[in-house]
């Protein structure tokens, strides 16, 4: 294991072998018809089309090392899905290059397609009318998986995802969580080395999200597969990804460790203080008070002063904490990181 410098100077850990994903200056511009609203505009547009270029992805470059799980983040319409589609081979780029497992993805060569997978949480790979088990068999034929390999992989996936009880039912009768398990299994039967996951946990309840997350983590540990994952759930990102790439308006905004982003974008901590007999104690002299949650005792009297959140510069946390503890009747004190959602949101707009 050795640290590697990326283009923007952040470091990460590379495991064995050459980087499976190398993206250099990748761009995609869509040409869309552009017309104003209203009847007149519609008629004019019928005879004379106006076109407008939409730059979905602009000059994006990054490298991902073998076995890494990288979070690919950005608001809706940032260009995440377009990038994943280019890397999996579905779309031709309008500029730049990509090299995944020594292949150019959009050539869509059979041996490339056999070594990757794309999972889109909002789209169905499995046929609705037949049980997942039958779709698995079709995949076995399409991907030319030998019977012994198929059985070994299926047993392993079954152990992690508990598939046996659900794969005999037609897919239309499965719950969303059960369906996602089957979708993931179908996408992994051919043991891909690179996984592109586009919002694999979307719409799932908390329990199902947790199960999918721990499955991905375990799958990555066992198989050493490289994973590029998009999600709007920060819990997915914090649980799985040491490194994140942020993209906004098609441009790369950040590429580095999640922890470093917090330090860079939001170099502060939150001190949560619960005070004893001191209702009017003012915490604003220690830092910015961002939240006051007054709580009352069972008898209706002001049993304590409630919980207050004070925002303090990261390098002053120790000193400020010591002063608060010395000055005030503190009943409870914790130090928290700023919420990751806030950090990411700030990064988008920086």
């Amino acid at each position: 294991m050795q640290p590697v410098q990326t283009r923007n100077g952040t470091s990460r850990i590379a495991r064995n072998g050459p980087d499976p994903i190398i993206v250099d200056g990748l761009s995609k511009t869509y040409r869309v018809t552009d017309r104003e609203g209203g009847f007149g505009a519609a008629v004019r547009s019928f005879f004379k089309r106006k076109y407008r270029d939409v730059k979905a992805v602009q000059n994006v470059s990054f490298r991902i090392g073998s076995g890494e799980i990288v979070g690919f983040l950005g608001p809706n319409g940032a260009g995440k899905t377009t990038t994943l589609k280019m890397l999996s081979g579905l779309l031709y780029p309008t500029g730049g290059s990509a090299n995944v497992l020594s292949h150019t993805p959009w050539e869509r060569r059979a041996d490339y397609l056999r070594s990757i997978t794309l999972v889109m949480g909002q789209r169905n790979r499995l046929s609705w009318d037949i049980p997942a088990a039958d779709s698995f068999l079709l995949n076995q034929a399409i991907y030319r998986i030998g019977d012994a390999d198929y059985k070994r992989t299926f047993d392993e996936l079954n152990e992690l995802l508990e598939l046996a009880a659900i794969i005999r039912k037609p897919v239309r009768n499965l719950s969303l969580g059960e369906r996602m398990k089957c979708e993931l299994a179908a996408a992994l039967l051919h043991r891909p080395q690179v996984l592109f996951l586009d919002e694999p946990t979307i719409g799932l309840d908390i329990g199902a999200q947790v199960r999918i997350r721990s499955f991905l983590k375990e799958y990555n540990r066992r198989s050493g597969a490289t994973i590029l994952l998009t999600s709007h759930y920060m819990a997915d990102v914090t649980a799985l990804c040491e490194r994140i790439i942020i993209i906004h308006h098609g441009q790369l905004k950040y590429d580095g460790k999640l922890a470093d982003l917090s330090r860079r974008i939001a170099p502060y901590k939150l001190i949560a203080v619960r005070l004893g007999d001191c209702i009017d104690c003012d915490l604003s002299r220690y830092g910015t008070v961002v939240e006051v949650a007054a709580e009352y005792g069972a008898d209706g009297a002001n049993g304590d002063g409630g919980k207050q959140l004070v925002q303090v510069k990261a390098d002053e946390v120790a000193a400020v904490t010591a002063r608060i503890l010395a000055d005030l009747p503190v009943s409870d004190l914790t130090i928290e990181d700023p919420p990751i959602e806030d950090v990411i949101e700030r990064a988008f707009h920086e």
């Binding site: 589609k85 081979g89 889109m120 789209r123």
Partner: peptide, 22 residues
């Protein structure tokens, strides 16, 4: 319509054959 055709194009087999015998 629903975009599931994307998956067909990502399968390592002739796409014309696949859409003909689904």
């Amino acid at each position: 319509r629903d975009g599931s055709l994307d998956y067909t194009f990502l399968q390592p087999a002739n796409s014309q054959l696949l859409i003909s015998i689904t």
